[in-house]
Write a protein that binds this DNA or RNA. Structure first.
Length: 392
RNA sequence: GGGGGGAUUCCCGAGCGGUCAAAGGGACCAGACUGUAAAUCUGGUGGCUCAGCCUUCGCAGGUUCGAAUCCUGCUCCCCCCA
């Protein structure tokens, strides 16, 4: 098999950060059978974001080349609750919630994956093992080895807590690979250690070892940290089109190349001015995840209206004025937009509150209801309400 | 089992008897500017009937005119030695 076309190793290894051991993927491909390509997802948070799709897209490439994806839903690992980091308060999810998350996960994963070439399994099927078996697994690696992992090493050096359970995680993940007979496992670069340790576990269990392939991590919309739900710098694949478009427009220019390469498999067109390149990116991804060309066009129009023209959106929700001759503005704003009155007052004094485009000030605390009726109230840049009703 | 360290406002992290609603950074919000919800700059970020008042510094008490800061007990966390 040559490295050309869309099924060879060269193609499959485009954009990958690591593919270890060297040359191993090529050897497996030469066997000429469909490879079992594993990805594990922990259904702790219910949403897949663009960062996940980097890996999913690569899996899709494998599928298109005739291979099979084994999606492991980490229902069991989620139930145990990964205490990583310092948050001890992390609640253990109940089974129902995990099932729900797993469902949405699967659904969302199929925005990229080909369902016909995907096996979905739950690791609860095999991880709910007897202590005896767990001990066997626990013998396959040493503490020193586990402490090699960068984040463990750093935390250990800093005297930060590391729970035994955390230490066990890589082994459980490795056991998944044994259970599904993985030929290849994909993950972000942060998974490299786990992917390689899985090989060791596989060896100990006498099954063929997998190839560890890692993809670069997609920077979040802040352009600094990796995209992650908990950092709030993510673009979810099921978000409304306007959100997807808007969030993508907010990424810093210098991470655009990474977005292009990892999400669209191509480079930024150097002939395009940055804004246009960013629009093209936003348009394309919005079309893919946000419901097609039409939705993308609408989202872009919405964006232009709001952020370029600084006008109110086409459709503004109505809000009822309270009873009474005069309206206490901080109270109204607080009620309408879920703020505290102090926050509302602050916005007012900062010129962040506008009535039909005219800024109000903090001398406008109590206003006659008729001055408000049927007017457009804008709070900050993006929040609007059309004021209706009130005393007649 | 023994010893040591720690719990502060959304997060990290200063404060160590009054001048503390509490430094600084992050995050977030607003304003200016702009090709953008980028960058940059400025301001803001406990609540309220807002030139004042009220509630916050793990929990419960205590000392003091006055405590996030001192004392006692409790809870939780971390590290080290065995």
């Amino acid at each position: 098999m040559s490295g050309r076309g869309t099924s060879g190793a060269d193609f499959l290894l485009r954009n990958v950060e690591n593919a270890l051991p060297e040359g191993e993927l090529e050897r497996k491909l030469e066997e000429g059978r469909p490879l079992r390509v594993k990805l594990g997802l922990d259904p702790t948070a219910p949403d897949i974001h663009l960062g996940h799709t980097v890996v999913l897209r690569k899996l899709r490439a494998f599928q298109d080349a005739g291979h099979v994806v084994v999606l492991i839903v980490g229902d069991y690992t989620a139930r145990v609750g990964d205490p990583s980091g310092r948050s001890t308060a992390r609640p253990q999810l109940d089974p129902e919630e995990i099932d729900r998350n797993a469902d949405t996960y699967r659904q969302q994963a199929f925005t990229v994956l080909d369902p016909d070439r995907t096996e979905v399994v739950h690791n609860g099927e095999w991880l709910d093992m007897k202590a005896e078996e767990l001990f066997r697994l626990a013998r396959t690696a040493t503490v020193a080895q586990l402490l090699e992992r960068d984040d463990f090493a750093a935390r250990f050096a800093a005297g930060s807590p590391i729970s035994v359970l955390e230490l066990l995680y890589p082994l459980l993940q490795g056991y998944d690979s044994v259970a599904v007979r993985a030929d290849v496992e994909l993950g972000g670069t942060d998974q490299l250690f786990n992917l390689l340790l899985a090989r060791q576990v596989q060896q100990a269990y006498g099954v063929p070892q997998q190839v560890a392939i890692t993809m670069p991590l997609l920077p979040g919309t802040d352009g600094v940290r990796r995209m992650s739900k908990s950092e709030g710098n993510y673009v979810g694949v099921t978000e409304p089109p306007e959100e997807i478009f808007g969030k993508l427009m907010s990424i810093p220019d210098d991470v655009m190349p990474a977005y292009y390469r990892l999400l669209l498999d191509r480079d930024v067109d150097p002939a395009l001015p940055p804004v246009e390149a960013k629009r093209a990116l936003a348009r394309e991804l919005t079309a893919h995840f946000g419901g097609g060309e039409e939705a993308a066009r609408a989202a872009e129009a919405h964006f232009d209206r709001l952020h370029v023209e600084h006008e109110a959106p086409e459709e503004v929700e109505d809000a009822m004025l309270p009873e009474g001759e005069t309206v206490h503005l901080p109270a109204l704003i607080a009620d309408l937009f879920g703020l505290s009155r102090s926050e509302a007052r602050r916005l007012l004094s900062q010129g962040g509150v506008k009535l039909d485009g005219e800024p109000l000030s903090d001398s406008d605390l109590d206003v006659p209801a008729e001055r408000l009726r049927d007017r457009l109230l804008q709070v900050g840049r993006r929040r609007f309400k059309r004021l209706r009703g009130g005393p007649s």
